[in-house]
């Protein structure tokens, strides 16, 4: 792509404007990265510790899937296995409400600034989700049996 290089140089030279209220220094996240690295190192190390230190005595019964001693049924779950619908439903509901939270948080931070308008909006927002919620509830989407 011949036009890419000039574009990139230009973008690289574009001054990055700094909105005052945005903490823009990525270095703030450095401790998080350090923590992640340490935690990961610890976890991997621990996970590798088992095979290194522990004994390894092969036994056919050991590596069979555990099913309370009955002959394991042949692979019902991986690949072609099916998961009860209720779990999908829960996943979908979770996404729905998770998204609601995504909006509630920023709103909550600046709710005072938004005042009555914010109240109206958030009320409409929650009501909208509420409609869906009522629907799911009444149609038995929240019932497990």
């Amino acid at each position: 792509m011949p036009t890419l290089r000039p574009l990139l140089t230009e973008l690289a030279q574009t001054p990055v404007a700094q909105p005052p209220d945005v903490v823009s220094n990525l270095a703030v996240y450095l401790p998080l990265v350090v923590m992640f690295a340490l935690a990961a190192a610890f976890a991997v190390f621990s996970a590798l510790l088992g095979p290194l230190l522990g004994p390894s005595r092969y036994n056919k019964a050991k590596v069979a899937a555990y099913e309370c001693g009955i002959e394991p049924s042949p692979q019902p779950v991986i690949g072609g296995g099916r998961v009860p619908v209720a779990y999908y439903l829960t996943a979908m509901l979770f996404i729905l409400f998770d998204i609601e939270m995504v909006f509630l948080y920023p709103f909550a931070v600046s709710a005072d600034v938004l005042g009555m308008f914010g109240l109206l909006e958030i009320f409409l927002f929650i009501a909208t989700v509420g409609f869906a919620y009522a629907y799911v509830w009444r149609r038995g989407g929240l019932d497990w049996n």
Binding site: A127, T128, F131, A132, A134, Y135, W137, R138, R139
Partner: peptide, 10 residues
């Protein structure tokens, strides 16, 4: 549309 969802529910 929202009302209609409520109809479905109730």
């Amino acid at each position: 549309a929202c009302l209609s969802v409520l109809f479905e529910a109730l």
